[in-house]
Design a protein around this nucleic acid. Sequence first.
RNA 1: GCCGAAAUGGCGGAAUAGGCAGACGCAAGGGACUUAAAAUCCCUCGGUAGCAAUAUCGUGCCGGUUCAAGUCCGGCUUUCGGCACCA
Length: 805
Amino acid sequence: MAIYDFKQIEQKWQDRWDKEEKFKAIDFHPTKPKYYVLYEFFNVSGNLHMGHLKGTVPSDVIARYKRFKGYNVLFPIGGDSFGLPAENAAIKKGINPRKFVADGMKNVVAQSKRIGLSFDWSRTFCTSDVEYYKWTQWIFLQLFKHNKAYKEKGVVNFCEHCQTVLSNEDSQGGKCDRCGNEVIQVNRDVWFLKMKEYSEKLLKNVDYINMAESLKESQRNWIGKSEGVELKLDLVDENGNKISNLKIYTTCIETAYGITFVVLAPENKLVDELKQNIKNFDSVLEYRQKTALKTEFDRISQAKDKTGCKLEGIYAINPLTNAKVPVYLADFVLNNYGTGAVMAVPCHDQRDYEFAKEFNIPMIQVIEGDCSQNAVEKYEYITKNSKMLNSAEFSGMPVREAKQKMTEMVEKLGIGERKVNYKMQDWSFNRQRYWGEPFPIVFCDHCGVVPLDEKDLPLVLPETDDYLPNAKGDSPLSKIDSFVHCKCPKCGQDARRETDTMPNWAGSSWYWLRYIDPHNDKALADPEKLKYWGEVDVYLGGTEHITRHVLYAFFWQNFLYEIGVVPTPNPFKRKLGSGLILDSEGKKMSKSSVNGVSPLEVIDKYGADATRLHVHFLAGYEDNSMWTYNGIDGIVNFLDRVWKLQEIVKDGGVSKEHEIELNSLLKKVEDDYENAKLNTAISAFMIFIKKIREDGWLTKEELKQFLIALNPLAPHITSEIFERVFGHDILEESFPEYDKNKTERDEIEIPVQVCGKLKGKIAISKNLSQEEVLKLIRESGKFAVDFENVKKVIYVPNKIINLIV
RNA sequence: GCCGAAAUGGCGGAAUAGGCAGACGCAAGGGACUUAAAAUCCCUCGGUAGCAAUAUCGUGCCGGUUCAAGUCCGGCUUUCGGCACCA
């Protein structure tokens, strides 16, 4: 028999799958139920790296397995091609981003095929394809029309060297990701999407989706729900005359008797409204300016140094005590959370405590505990359920009860109300960059902000060879006159286009819907097809940007559901996050990794099947694994043994000798495939092979079932052996059914314990009664048991027997 | 600081619902085949004591529940991930 020539054989099958389009999903299949397997977008930046093997192979295994199980499987792929990688290539190397994307995608497609991935290539697209981003723009128009998009002044990260606005990710540590220069804060027009409105719905989505608890938790953290009270305080001048009022938000209303000052965010609008009453308005303005210059990074890194500025001439009245307390500005209060103002109770909040020390503000302790060094904070006093102090009729009451009662009281008095707050902010949705979706928005001197007509979509991103923003940091599109100048869709007079583009996230926030109907030019997708394919059954990908991506996905799907475009509010039923492949230094392996190993290099050396198995034998899907060639010999050896099964096959159905091994293999493999536990599936195949090699033969039927079961993991070698032995394509087969009753032998061994200590094992037939087992133990004479003194017997049928003497 | 996940041989890692800890693989050691090597095949392989049968200890640490704990409970330690001046 010929030796296993993986190069030639893998090429043969990859060509055939490609040419015959073997993995096309069929809309409205008359008999088969649908199954939608989604793998995350590829970044179109040239080459696949090891991490892709870790992520893609399990999705491929599930897709191939489900096809065998009789499902009509949709398993598409595409490219996330707008954004930094292509734009950087354009700027640094002078490559047209369109060409960069086209070349990159071509590469990635070819490499995917070499891994043997069974994508439906007829549905592939990139986010920068005009046929696709037309619909991204269309969705934005719907958001705008339904009042979910608005434009406002906002503060953004800006790099003066690159003349561009940066996202938080691109400016980590206060340095520009591109050039390493300091990032500063500038005021700009910002498009926001009203994501905050969806906070509660997004939390429901998080509950709904089947996903690792840690991933759910980070999403809940991001949404950041908290429940508390909004309290109204009067503001007075020095003489006690009411001049205004102010709302603060607190989750600790129980400390309200301890308020000794109030703090506003520097940006709080009240400051301007009270200009006449503020005696030191100049220094207030100065403080404001100083904080505005601080970057987000500075504000966080200097968190412990409390700065602030007193508003001279203004006081707040604690509505519970009528005490007159000073009002400060301080940058530890954020304008975009709660009401942009807080009540300060230094004894029971560490930040207030530090601020009070810095500014010599008195403190009032209202809950038991030691406040001499630090504040006694909520976590501590709530867990201990400490007693109240200095709080009028609440004094002496346990804090949990007081919290309840005080909430009810302020509501009754009309000075406060229960309120829920979320950390999540509206989504800032524009970037001053070239390589993104243009906004379908026009500014008209007469009509204001005007959306394009749907029939005028797509608004095509114009060609240019100048990818840099102008000196003011405006998008490169602002330099292209023919793009900027247009007629107002409403009044027909001269107008200007929005020249910013959408962020990278936009295109990836709805793409699973487009796979369902990728060539539709009348709608985002045909409603009937959307109904047929429904939710994504399982969505696989890395965990890197998962929190925000999934929340954005929930948000858009929810919105599209509300306006009747899609049939379900939930995009995904289940999400699996793959671990990373780490290099020899324990760093994430990516294309930029110094110690990176290319998957193609490994495939060249060992073949695609061996590479697929090896990567997934190293660790479970969700675990990180350190890349190593160690162990790959074991996989090569295994595949070699699989190949040699051809030599020892004989006619016949499933034999008595192998039925237990075969049935338990099939059971194990089904369970593991469903849960993407490929490492234990592989070991189950190894165990089966071991038994077959001991016996030196297997039947044709046994070989057939073995090959089908292994095919999702190692599709090339199993296809080849199958064709040689059975004369047709393995893909025509269906997954072998196992017999549950034949997964275990009738004769089994169970451990015998005496007083919980293992003394040995005894062979019994299945489902024996306790008496029969005891009789066998007695007869065997093997176990030194004093049967007269056996006080108690614990017998778990077919599992264990424990004798207590 | 808060939240989440994890810690098992020389190594990667198994152990479905509390029931034989270390599956499967690598590395290592021994043997067969070979002129030799590679490849292949067979055997051994958690620690300690013993020629051995066997005994005894052993899943990050300290306690507990249970006939029985890697698994459950209480208290720590360390590592990784998320959030973080969020009132």
